[in-house]
Simulated scan of single mutants.
Amino acid sequence: MTEEEKTKDFYNRLREQLENDTSWPTDYLFKFIVPASLEKIAEIEAVFDSMGAQIQTRDSSKGTYTSISVKVHLESPDAVIEKYLQVSKVEGVISL
């Protein structure tokens, strides 16, 4: 199975789980970890720009990483997946 197929399968399972476990529209909480860099944080914040998202950041104890929590109102599981795909383009990001 190729990496692309694994990614597609992952997002299909996520979509199914979100459809079954959540009433839509809803507030969804994203969590990411990025290398401590104002540029990386800004890239992630830009994905959620103009959406009324509540964004919180916290640096790791050594200051090498930053955790980012984003709470945003979304209409569907597809909107969640779209945001994950946009954020995945940020180099070094880990989605939790």
Results as ranks from 00 to 15, higher is better:
residue 89 K to H: 15
residue 51 M to R: 14
residue 94 I to S: 07
residue 95 S to D: 12
residue 10 F to R: 11
residue 27 D to C: 02
residue 94 I to L: 14
residue 75 E to W: 09
residue 79 A to H: 11
residue 83 K to Q: 12
residue 92 G to L: 03
residue 25 P to Q: 07
residue 85 L to W: 05
residue 23 S to R: 06
residue 72 V to W: 01
residue 75 E to K: 12
residue 39 E to P: 04
residue 86 Q to W: 09
residue 73 H to P: 03
residue 45 E to L: 07
residue 33 I to Q: 01
residue 61 S to C: 06
residue 44 I to P: 04
residue 25 P to K: 07
residue 73 H to W: 13
residue 24 W to Y: 04
residue 92 G to Q: 04
residue 61 S to M: 12
residue 54 Q to V: 14
residue 42 A to I: 08
residue 9 D to N: 14
residue 76 S to L: 08
residue 96 L to E: 14
residue 82 E to M: 02
residue 55 I to D: 03
residue 70 V to E: 04
residue 77 P to K: 04
residue 72 V to Q: 02
residue 87 V to H: 03
residue 92 G to W: 00
residue 68 I to F: 02
residue 52 G to L: 07
residue 5 E to K: 13
residue 9 D to F: 01
residue 15 R to T: 10
residue 34 V to N: 00
residue 30 F to H: 04
residue 57 T to K: 01
residue 6 K to T: 06
residue 4 E to G: 02
residue 47 V to M: 09
residue 69 S to T: 13
residue 39 E to K: 12
residue 3 E to K: 15
residue 91 E to G: 07
residue 27 D to G: 07
residue 82 E to G: 03
residue 28 Y to H: 12
residue 87 V to F: 03
residue 87 V to A: 13
residue 6 K to N: 09
residue 24 W to T: 03
residue 39 E to W: 01
residue 84 Y to G: 08
residue 9 D to Q: 15
residue 69 S to Q: 14
residue 8 K to C: 06
residue 6 K to R: 13
residue 36 A to W: 01
residue 73 H to K: 14
residue 56 Q to E: 15
residue 54 Q to L: 13
residue 83 K to M: 14
residue 55 I to H: 01
residue 45 E to N: 12
residue 31 K to S: 05
residue 95 S to P: 01
residue 23 S to N: 15
residue 43 E to K: 15
residue 74 L to T: 08
residue 28 Y to Q: 10
residue 50 S to Y: 10
residue 63 G to V: 11
residue 44 I to Q: 05
residue 88 S to E: 14
residue 93 V to I: 08
residue 59 D to L: 13
residue 39 E to N: 12
residue 10 F to W: 08
residue 24 W to F: 07
residue 37 S to F: 01
residue 48 F to A: 09
residue 11 Y to P: 04
residue 32 F to I: 06
residue 18 L to V: 11
residue 92 G to P: 02
residue 48 F to W: 01
residue 54 Q to F: 10
residue 80 V to E: 05
residue 24 W to A: 03
residue 34 V to H: 00
residue 34 V to Y: 02
residue 42 A to L: 11
residue 45 E to S: 12
residue 79 A to I: 06
residue 66 T to G: 01
residue 78 D to W: 04
residue 62 K to V: 09
residue 1 M to K: 08
residue 93 V to D: 02
residue 3 E to V: 11
residue 23 S to E: 15
residue 96 L to W: 05
residue 67 S to G: 12
residue 1 M to N: 04
residue 22 T to M: 11
residue 76 S to D: 07
residue 86 Q to L: 15
residue 8 K to H: 12
residue 81 I to E: 05
residue 40 K to F: 01
residue 63 G to E: 06
residue 40 K to N: 15
residue 40 K to D: 08
residue 11 Y to M: 08
residue 64 T to P: 00
residue 87 V to I: 10
residue 53 A to D: 03
residue 69 S to E: 14
residue 16 E to K: 15
residue 30 F to A: 05
residue 93 V to C: 08
residue 32 F to P: 00
residue 80 V to L: 05
residue 82 E to Y: 12
residue 27 D to S: 11
